[in-house]
Design a protein around this nucleic acid. Structure first.
Lengths: 194, 194
DNA sequence: TAAATTTATTACCATACATCAATTTTTGAG
DNA sequence: CTCAAAAATTGATGTATGGTAATAAATTTA
């Protein structure tokens, strides 16, 4: 139980809970250990869970009609990930979630997420603030895609997420930046020549 | 007071309040009537408020180094708008907020927003759910920018937001889609020819 | 360590969209 | 209603990034 208690202090950093509360929260979380290459969620499945990434690396990606993959998000330590379009409305996934580096995750259902907010309202506040940060990041990403070149976006990405860059393939990064792996390769070459 | 009460039933559709609660909420909201062309917020100012759009039309845009404008968001009836990157962290705006059609707005400060959540927790739930919807929309927009052509994004935009399309200039739409006004013009021509 | 597989690079050509410069059409102030 | 200003369109040309194909480098597996 001490070990379990420590995961709550990771997930809900800065918060403290009564023993009763901690037990209640833990009863809703399920630990998963997954290997690289595993699929957490497939396009078309109902999105029932979101996942807290304790370690490892995970991504969500969309596959278009022509079969090209487009990475929406990477998640490493202390991020939450899901197909939120489906999760929030309990509808079908439009994306896939893939483990790209062996990972330890904690999963929780939509229903249990709401139950926790209901029982322990300060969890709702905690989560809202996390979401505010993620919301702002997505806005910045849209602005970047509107206002900057592929090269600038790549430089900004490796500055912002050095821990991700080291752990994922270049073709993952290219699909996140919205360019081909060949274009990324050319950009990387230019950068080394500067 | 009856008139004022009705605005709460617009803003917080589906919720009901005691008389005391209604007065408390109203005390935090300030009504604004603004003309087309007015600026609500300028790049560099501290973001202290968010705005509920009762009617009219508002947009947030980013101006890049070369002077080009990039529209992040339009807001019409029943949308909230602000520079959320700044609002959530009470830091400086990176965007501008412009009235593009005479508008009636209700503004509330970050501090008062938090005070409302604290006093009336179900407002926090209400707001969280609104934000979940907005969050999902932004994710979809990123996916669209990664996976689809300008023409597809335009067709999708007018299908999704017909009420906005009628009220804004084509160059606003172009700056939202991430293309030039000339390119949008050519796309429109192709569509009429099909 | 060698072989097989995956990933990254490079070259050459194609395309979507940008830029620049008129011109036409629409809007709105007086 | 008129006319000036704003917005949209069009044509000619430029550029960033895409597509294809071949090769090289890195990683995984046997």
């Amino acid at each position: 139980m001490n070990i379990e208690k420590s995961i709550l202090s990771e997930i809900y950093k800065g918060m403290s809970f009564s023993c009763e509360e901690a037990l209640f929260i833990e009863s809703k979380l399920e630990k998963l250990e997954l290997k690289k290459g595993a699929t957490l969620l497939k396009n078309g499945e109902t999105v029932l869970h979101q996942y807290y990434v304790y370690n490892g690396c995970v991504r969500t990606y969309f596959m278009d009609r022509s079969g090209k993959e487009h990475t929406l998000q990477f998640a490493v330590n202390d991020w939450w990930i899901s197909d939120y379009t489906g999760f929030f409305s309990s509808t079908k996934a439009i994306m896939n979630i893939e483990i790209i580096q062996d990972a330890t995750l904690y999963k929780i259902s939509r229903k249990d997420t709401e139950a926790l907010f209901c029982e322990i309202p300060r969890l709702e506040t905690f989560f809202r603030k996390k979401m505010e940060g993620a919301f702002a990041s997505f806005q910045q990403r849209i602005l970047a895609s509107l206002a900057t070149s592929a090269k600038e976006r790549y430089v900004s990405f490796i500055g912002l997420y050095p821990q991700i860059e080291q752990r994922v393939k270049n073709y993952h990064i290219a699909s996140y930046l919205g360019i081909t792996t060949e274009s990324l390769s050319r950009i990387r070459k230019e950068l080394t020549q500067e």
